[in-house]
Nucleic acid binder design. Structure first.
Lengths: 224, 224, 224, 224
DNA sequence: AATGAATGAGGCTTCATTCAT
DNA sequence: TATGAATGAAGCCTCATTCAT
């Protein structure tokens, strides 16, 4: 029972940390704020997690787990093109539905990089998850997909979803994001069509029916 | 004369801030560290920049300026495909040559979003720069490019370069990054070929001659 | 148990603040100095009082409490003239015995005025204390005292004691202050005799037996 | 010319200091704020006054001069009672018309006390001014006034005006202050009548025709 | 003579963490 | 086991003052 209580406390704290990081950034995520968000005394936080670093590592693992679940849920068990498209779309929609997660992940990237060690382990499994899913596929024409091509696919899906996430994080315009989602999937499709054989994408080309605020199509990263 | 000295000081401090943010993150970028990096007394920092916030805003503007310069330098004054490809490649190479800039930009994104106000002004001009460049182009076939298509192009270039930057930030493997660069440009080409008419990309398809550590093709963001 | 410790700490800090304010003025009363005076680490001060402002408010309340106690202790339960005289004398003697309190109160007056809000609450109760005491009295002749007269009495007692406190604060000559005390009480008596009916004051007219430094009878406020 | 310019600058800075001290207190009266209030560069302040201490001393002297002028202007050249009453009333009205002066004087009292040395000189001249005026008088009955009585008078006038000033500083209710002014003069008259011979005061007893907010008759110093 | 630039010292506050119960 | 109390280190910022022109 006490064990369960402790595990619950830990989970609450991790969830609170996600929210606080999303709202205040890594540097604004103080132990006090996190404890308060979790309605826990400050000392309890350090009772559950020896160190802030340890807590953040747990947040890290939690988000990684969610990410893996999303990937697995998005596996459509089809040919490589449909599968890759499904993975991409699944990730994008996940970002859309959980804005906190995207923000927190972005915040933790640089933190994780500086921390270094513990992240390495996690990278491999991330790679493994996508790879495992894609290795079970063939092209629409039934040909097997080369290992190299899978790596390239993983990179493209990854880069596109990261780019999308950044935009969605910065602008919060849901309408623009939905358009960008279709556009993003279209980019993947175009690349796969050119590199995985001629099958036309099964999704329609982007049709912007609503006229969203086009300005927000552009990430502010491209500042001048 | 004295003015110049002050302007220099400001520039030094901004440069120091870029380095410190890149190395220690936004939260690790304390005024003390920045001042030390710039070999300036702490009080001098506050003489030049009333507030840490103001300093960061200056860093912001500085990076934005660099970004705009990169874009303008990358304008190949050709048809829309070559121009867009040039912009993308220019940005990617800029990231490659200035790892600090990429890291700092990423770090500042969430900061800038939380700060909010001052970023808005910058977005519009970012849009304008790319747009100005692309509006002067036609397709290889000589047809004009619709305004909507330009917006989509801007988003795609933006998303791809963001995705690339994230990967390059996390892994620091220059060899892998060079491969990813070609791959990224290839993605843009494929999308343009499918959406801007049939002209084949003038760059060769990706040829991975070196065998980079493929694991690092995948951003750890895709953790599981 | 732990609670008691915390309360003690708070009391110690408030007492230290009184001493430091008296010695160094409001602006010289730095958190560091106060903490040092209380033999407490600086951080502890901020654990007990979120803000310097909050600490000063506590000092405020403490002094107010002492003042109220002095007033109540000085209630001679006699006719209005003796009672008012007792209040005035009690306050003056309190100032004489606790020079720190007078200095601190004076220092805090302007601070409290600038802070504004929290003082308002206190005023009403100050009024109430003197009023409660005086309302229970009649004139020596047994006539009731009008509400308006009580207000005037309160002002006169107040102004005289303030004037006395200022002089005592500036000169530190105890001998002169004792003479001034009698003189001050004499002023009140003269006014009451003229306005509350003919009973002669029960104290003798001022007899300056010692020849104090007369220069110090004059507040330096009257500088030229 | 340059000399005049410098003298003007000094006067401006002193006047600015009075305003700033009144508004922000001694501790809030920073060199920067004072310079800004005087529309002068910060360095100019230190060019005109070697030290903040020196500036404040000048403020001190300025206020003392004003005070002396007020006293001299209030000299009615009549018998001792009328003269003393005139002095008191003159001072009270001066406070009423120049709220900044009262606040600044109060702020500077404790500062001056801590600084110590330079104030001593000034005290004597303050004493001298009132004394000079009062020594030229006789009682209404034509009898000379003893030196001791003059000292007592000076103290009473001083204490009453100080008490009045404190109240006026704290409450800013002009209506209440006017009532208190009459009341204060009445107190002096009662005391003089009792101690300087039988002549009834030439002012009417206090008649409160308007019903001011009586609460503000009580200085909050008398807090409980 | 004037004043922008620069700075050491110190202001208040908050942090992550440990202690003591 | 849990948690109020306590704290050293460090955060950002502002002060009065001096320097250099």
């Amino acid at each position: 029972m006490a064990r369960i209580r402790a595990a619950e406390r830990r989970a609450e704290l991790v969830a609170a940390a996600v929210r606080v990081i999303a709202a205040h950034g890594v540097d604004g995520a103080t132990t006090r704020r996190i404890a308060e968000e979790a309605s826990a005394p400050l000392a309890t936080l350090h009772y559950c997690f020896a160190t802030k670093e340890v807590l953040f590592a747990a947040v890290f693992e939690y988000l990684a787990g969610e990410y893996r679940d999303v990937l697995n849920r998005s596996d459509v068990h089809s040919d490589v093109q449909n599968t890759a498209r499904g993975l991409l779309r699944g990730v994008l929609e996940w970002y859309l539905e959980n804005p906190d997660f995207g923000a927190t992940i972005l915040e933790l990237i640089s933190w994780g990089q500086r921390e270094g060690e513990q992240a390495e382990v996690v990278y491999a499994s991330a790679f493994a998850t996508m790879r495992t899913i894609l290795e079970g596929t063939t092209t629409a024409a039934g040909r097997p997909v080369s290992s190299d091509m899978i790596d390239q696919l993983i990179y493209v899906v990854s880069a596109l979803s990261d780019g999308f996430a950044l935009n969605w994080l910065v602008f919060t315009d849901i309408a623009a994001a939905r358009v960008q989602m279709e556009l993003t999937v279209g980019v993947l499709d175009a690349w796969m069509a050119a590199n995985l054989g001629g099958a036309a994408p099964s999704t329609q080309p982007v049709e912007i029916t609503t006229e969203p605020d086009m300005r927000s199509l552009v990430s502010w990263v491209h500042v001048d």
